[in-house]
Amino acid sequence: MARTVRCAVMKREAEGLERPPHPGALGQRIFENVSKEGWKQWLQRLATIINENKLSTADPGSIQVIEQHMLGFLFGEGDMGKLPAGFQPAGGKK
């Protein structure tokens, strides 16, 4: 039987992740409070955040920025996690 969590992103019970998706205490918090679907939504947002802000997952400074966006998107903490200002999805109206 699949593990369920009260997803902080979707605000409802949903299937949980199989393992922590990020190292350390933050990864454990995500594992306990974010569903597979919520994490999938984060990964889609993450791609946009990385591209729009020209971040690198190999740069420790970028990782700190990514984690701040992660906290904002997943848990509503801080001012980060939203789409970058002025972001227009591909094919969007200008």
Score class of each variant (00 low, 15 high):
G38V: 05
R45H: 12
P23W: 10
G76P: 09
G78T: 08
A14Q: 13
S56F: 04
W39H: 04
E67K: 14
A25Q: 11
P60L: 10
K11E: 04
A25H: 11
T48P: 00
E32G: 03
V34I: 12
H22C: 04
V9R: 06
R6H: 13
T4R: 10
Q68D: 13
V5W: 02
K94Y: 06
L74A: 06
K94A: 14
N53K: 01
V9G: 08
L83S: 09
A47Y: 05
K94L: 09
R29D: 08
E18D: 14
F73P: 04
G91P: 07
G27T: 07
F75M: 13
A2N: 13
L83G: 01
F73W: 02
E52M: 08
A90T: 13
I49W: 01
D79H: 13
A58W: 01
E52R: 09
G72D: 06
K93F: 03
F75H: 11
R45G: 00
A58I: 00
P21T: 11
E32V: 01
S62G: 06
K40Y: 04
P20D: 13
R6E: 12
F75R: 12
I30N: 04
V5H: 04
R12F: 01
W39M: 04
I63Q: 10
L83D: 14
R3K: 10
A47E: 15
V65R: 14
L55V: 03
G76F: 05
M1Y: 13
C7A: 02
F31H: 14
H22S: 03
E15I: 11
G27D: 06
N51L: 03
W39Q: 03
Q44T: 11
Q41G: 01
L55Q: 03
E13F: 07
I66G: 07
G81P: 06
L74I: 03
E77R: 08
L17Y: 04
G92M: 03
P21R: 11
K54F: 00
K82N: 12
D59H: 11
N53Q: 05
R29I: 00
M70R: 10
L55I: 01
K40H: 14
L17D: 01
D79T: 13
K93I: 08
G92R: 03
G92K: 08
S35V: 09
E52C: 06
K11C: 01
F75W: 10
V34A: 05
